[in-house]
Design a protein around this nucleic acid. Sequence first.
DNA 1: ACCACTATTATTAGAGG
DNA 2: GCCTCTAATAATAGTGG
Lengths: 186, 186
Amino acid sequence: MEKKTQGRKKIDMEKIKRRDYLQVTFSKRRNGLFKKASELCTMCGAKTAIVVYSPAGKAFSFGHPCVESTLDKFLATASLIEIGESSLGVPSFPDYHWNIGINKLNRHINELVNQLEAEKKYREGQFLWNKPIENLKFHELEQLRVSMEELKIKMVNRTEGLKRASMLSSYIDINQVRRTEDKGVQ
Amino acid sequence: MEKKTQGRKKIDMEKIKRRDYLQVTFSKRRNGLFKKASELCTMCGAKTAIVVYSPAGKAFSFGHPCVESTLDKFLATASLIEIGESSLGVPSFPDYHWNIGINKLNRHINELVNQLEAEKKYREGQFLWNKPIENLKFHELEQLRVSMEELKIKMVNRTEGLKRASMLSSYIDINQVRRTEDKGVQ
DNA sequence: ACCACTATTATTAGAGG
DNA sequence: GCCTCTAATAATAGTGG
């Protein structure tokens, strides 16, 4: 029962080398970050989304009111501004489109697919990919989406363990903090 | 020059009512949040993306190494997990969807864009990028096709990279804080 | 892995410029 | 709006269970 603690050391802002310390520090500081975000949301009425990847690639997220809505709003607005600003005073639209970076277009496509899925979900109240492929009606659009899903499913099969428990698990009412158990930062 | 300060008051974790206080508190705490995130990134080698919306709807973001890459990774993984969970008990989609033709893909993307345009018009009205897209469907389509191929390759590469350690990338800059000017929370 | 403790540092509310 | 200052609170590194 020796209560001799040496107290907090001044942080040196270097990457921690010891793996056990890294793990515990990551856990503590991630919780602190989410707590700060929660305080910012409740005190100031802000909307916040945080995504943190541990060095091992494990994902943790915080969202108020939820991660997806905040991120969707951000991505949509960013893309709109991006496209709108780039086309301001630039009559030669082909050049813009040909010069735009692949990454931006990738994000654009991801956004298109995500938004369309959200819209269809909102309209139809059901994900079409729960149904057998043979019954799909909008064959062309469906085939595109199914192909993308197949792409993603292959990613699931390859990324083995870090998937299902990571995200989209449970939402807590107050803060919508959702996190998985911290299996390690390694 | 009266230096009588009354010190910090215990926070009451309620929504601040005074608008000027709300503004300054939002600013201070947002900076504090980003600083904490930066520390987490440098100390633990984490990847982080934060999006904060002020009550006025103004967006602030922090990202390490950048917002987009972290969010892209999150959204891709989230989508595949979502699909993975939803497809539990559903036999895997056949492989031929991987080998879908480029020409078909062109039509699919075209329909995707058009349908999304329609949906967004229906839901929210006109958007800035509606008009240019109508003027240049061919170029848009061509670029989207290229980006789809890139996306496919990129996702495969990313998946293979996930299995190995993702700590290869160097975390150089302190913050890579990208934010807009704080015009007010109101 | 998580929890408790605590000395010490870090953050910040409130005020003034 | 932003910066400084400072007292007071909050977060946390290190330790033990």
